[in-house]
């Protein structure tokens, strides 16, 4: 097991290196320069700035310099915000995004699984139809629609929670709910399908024949066997939510990383683009590792195959 994890960590470093390289060159292919919107500067001033940031060097040299700095943990200095380190900027911004994402995922997974369970257990009943209908609705309506509705009805009309901004726990409620609807829908649909399949298995009949009660059959025998496909879809979804969602962050004026990232791309703020990409890539790879390890925890058959 330890050997497997070490092996995976080595692969992670290689992957990160490749992603950094690829992003660097792709970024340089983008049209425009960081100074595109700085037309008030004279040509000499522009030359000075370019020189200062090393943008006059040939691209391979820039790449070499960037990678050497990166290896030392230095992501450079942002072009937009003079003299602010990329690391600090990202760290300031990733907090709210991750908080929203994690809250939405936890709520989404729990509620979605419950909804799916109810659907599966009362298969083909009005309860099942209602929850399936809600799940389809949640999956097909974009989150910004819910965001707007929540803001208007809960935020403005009822006044239960603040409509926007980021000044405390109560400010996270509405964006979290808007974000959670999609994972609820996905989890509910997968849970329902998987539970239906699992509950039809022979070993469920075996468990019932032992005299295990309904609850025990579902929790001890059904749930665990239904979890694998759920984790497979929820993992990548979790990363998507945790790494910031442009639309929701904009609507609720959350100082998250999604908004920042898009802005950086627009103005060719190379260090921020690189830094953010690397961070998101790292989170992605890391979560995939966690999912793979979770598979083993849930299903002993997978554990053994990997251990050897």
């Amino acid at each position: 097991m330890t050997r497997y994890i070490i092996q995976r960590l080595v692969y992670m470093i290689i992957t990160m290196f490749l992603i950094a390289t690829l992003t660097f060159f792709l970024m340089k292919l983008l049209p425009g320069s960081p100074l595109a919107s700085a037309d008030k500067l004279s040509e000499e001033q522009q030359a000075v700035v370019l020189e200062k940031y090393g943008l006059n060097d040939p691209i391979p040299v820039q790449y070499y310099n960037y990678m050497v700095n990166l290896a030392q943990g230095d992501l450079g200095i942002s072009f937009q915000f003079d003299n602010r380190e990329v690391t600090t900027i990202i760290m300031d911004r990733i907090g709210p995004s991750m908080q929203l994402g994690i809250q939405a995922m936890v709520i989404g997974t729990i509620l979605g699984m419950l909804l799916g369970l109810v659907s599966a257990l009362y298969h083909n009943s009005p309860l099942d139809y209602t929850s399936t209908f809600l799940a389809v609705l949640g999956q097909s309506i974009p989150s910004f629609v819910f965001a707007g509705l929540l803001q208007f009805y809960i935020g403005v009309k009822l006044g239960w929670f603040p409509v926007a901004l980021w000044e405390g726990w109560e400010y996270t409620v509405l964006p979290t709910v808007s974000l959670a609807i999609f994972p609820i829908a996905i989890a509910a649909r997968f849970m329902r399908t998987e539970m239906l399949e699992v509950m039809g298995s022979d070993y469920i009949v075996t468990a019932r024949a032992k005299g295990v009660n309904k609850f025990g059959v579902i929790i001890k025998h059904g749930l665990r066997n239904a979890l694998i496909p759920l984790i497979t879809v929820l993992g990548p979804l979790a990363i998507g939510l945790m790494t910031g969602t442009l639309v929701i962050e904009n609507i609720f004026a959350v100082p998250g990383i999604g908004e920042q990232f898009v802005k950086a791309i627009n103005v060719n703020d190379y260090p921020i683009i690189m830094g953010t990409t690397l961070l998101l890539a790292f989170m992605f790879i890391f979560i995939i590792l966690v999912i793979d390890l979770l598979y083993g925890v849930i299903d002993p058959r997978i554990r053994l195959a990997e251990g050897e």
Partner: peptide
Amino acid sequence: EKQMQKIRGKEISMIFQDPMTSLNPTM
């Protein structure tokens, strides 16, 4: 169902056909 749960496995129990599928793979 409640009463049957006390009978099943205790007074009447069952051996199933296919041992490859009648055991819970994750337990």
